[in-house]
Design a protein around this nucleic acid. Structure first.
Length: 403
DNA sequence: GTCAATTCACATGAAAGAGACCACGGTCTAGTG
DNA sequence: CTAGACCGTGGTCTCTTTCATGTGAATTGACGA
């Protein structure tokens, strides 16, 4: 019976006309042919990196800007164009794009270099070799022939935070030792104050040139949304005002175009699933809700057990009496939780770090305060709606096998 | 009343350990000719 | 004779623990008015 029902469901699903023409256009990985409102910046990038086409070493470049303001997109666009020209002119130019944030790919010194070597087509073990050995291999591989290498390190702040700035120092210095080749580094960062915390030597050599990407304003986001929506959706499937609202939401969040596109896509999915023939304004609100919920749920379920236990303790303490809670008290509860779940409790030192990490993830708010004579502690609160809170709590209970 | 010293309850740093993963080279073993 | 199994060594990486040091304001207590 069930199976037959499902069958009918799928048939119905297929016969129903989709609102989308091509959903992938709204995905953040999609690169449009035209990049709106970023022409000046792309030209700037091209101007700085241009000398590479004559095999002269371009200045190292540093790009900042908040998330979703088109940094990566512009950079990628510029580099593909450059590669096209270099292929035509027979210039030995190589451009590598590496995203340092991807865990297990390029978030440590060793892994980044190993990844680079892999880009050159040589296999390298993911672990087991000494780091200088890997440097040597890299060095030899680059210097083997005369070439110009441009290294794009996306989310470079993440890398430095995890692996320290020694790596950057080595990379900027490597040019002096290369005989045949030259390396230029392009760093992309979301963190505006990141450069200030760098070692001055690295700072000066890394950011010979700087470009700051400002956020999009609401009108620009509207343009972008319109451009993509025209291709992604079928005609007449978006109600007037939807795009405007989407843009307004995203502009409020420091002009994040990626977010705006995601919002529109999810709104479209919701409208489609509920059998509407058009995306309506209320779907935007629902989409915003859903995105936030999914994000949280995703974070919560993928965290290790200890994190879950910490979060669970905080949540159960928070609901009991609805006021602010402190580190010491929640550590007590945490220990009890561990006992119930059969986990070995961590030290308070580690506990403190986990609280800080949960804060970073945006699941809880933790602020360090001083209570004067009564010590210093973190003031912890939760910023969830009560609906998702009980849902998350239930998931945590299951995950921790609490009864 | 004023002001510096004290004190609390953690925060924050640094270093080092445990355990998982992996490469490499040497040794042993069993199968093959 | 040789391919493959099986060590031991040496490396990275993440998560933790241990030990040490730092910190901001309420409280305290000495001091002077």
């Amino acid at each position: 019976m069930v199976q037959k029902g499902l069958n009918v469901f799928f048939e119905k699903f297929l016969s129903k006309e989709s609102l989308f023409r091509s959903k992938s256009i709204l995905q953040s990985s999609y690169a449009p042919d035209f990049i709106l409102h970023r022409n000046d910046y792309i030209e700037k990038i091209a101007g700085i990196l241009g000398p590479a086409l004559r095999l002269e070493k371009p200045s190292n470049l540093f790009i900042y800007g908040k998330t979703g303001v088109g940094k990566t997109l512009s950079m990628k666009y510029a580099s593909t164009e450059m590669l096209k020209v270099s292929a035509k002119q027979n210039v030995n130019l190589k451009i590598f794009y590496i995203n340092c944030k991807l865990r297990k790919v390029a978030d440590t010194e060793y892994r980044l270099i190993a990844q680079l070597i892999r880009e050159f087509g040589k296999e390298i073990p993911s672990t087991g070799l000494p780091t200088d050995e890997v440097y040597n291999i890299f060095f030899n591989i680059i210097d083997r022939e005369k070439q110009m290498v441009i290294l794009i390190l996306d989310e470079i702040d993440q890398l430095v935070k995890k692996a320290g700035d020694e790596l950057l120092y080595n990379l900027t210095r490597i040019n002096g030792e290369l005989k045949n080749s030259q390396i230029s580094i392009v760093g992309i960062s979301n963190d505006l104050i990141f450069v200030d915390n760098l070692d001055p030597r690295i700072k000066s050599s890394l950011s010979e040139e700087e470009i700051l990407f400002p956020p999009y304003n609401a009108l620009q986001i509207q343009d972008i949304l319109n451009q993509r929506a025209k291709e992604a959706f079928k005609e007449e499937s978006i109600e007037t005002g939807v795009i405007e609202k989407c843009a307004a939401y995203a502009a409020r969040e420091h002009g994040d175009a990626r977010r705006a596109l995601e919002l529109l896509r999810v709104a479209g999915e919701i409208a489609e699933r509920n059998g509407y023939s058009k995306v309506k304004i209320k779907h935007i609100d629902e989409a915003e809700d859903k995105i936030e919920r999914d994000r949280l749920l995703d974070i919560v379920t993928t965290q290790p057990k200890q994190f879950q236990a910490v979060l669970y303790s905080i949540m159960s303490l928070y609901t009991k009496k609805n006021n602010i809670i402190f580190t010491g008290k929640s550590y007590e509860v945490y220990k009890a939780t561990c006992f119930r779940a059969g986990l070995r409790p961590l030290t308070q030192r580690r506990f403190s770090d986990i609280i800080a990490e949960l804060d970073m993830l945006g699941i809880i708010n933790a602020k360090v305060i001083s209570k004067g004579r009564y010590g210093r502690t973190r003031e912890i609160s939760i910023s969830l709606s009560s609906v998702s809170e009980s849902k998350i709590k239930k998931i945590l209970e299951e995950g921790l096998e609490l009864s």
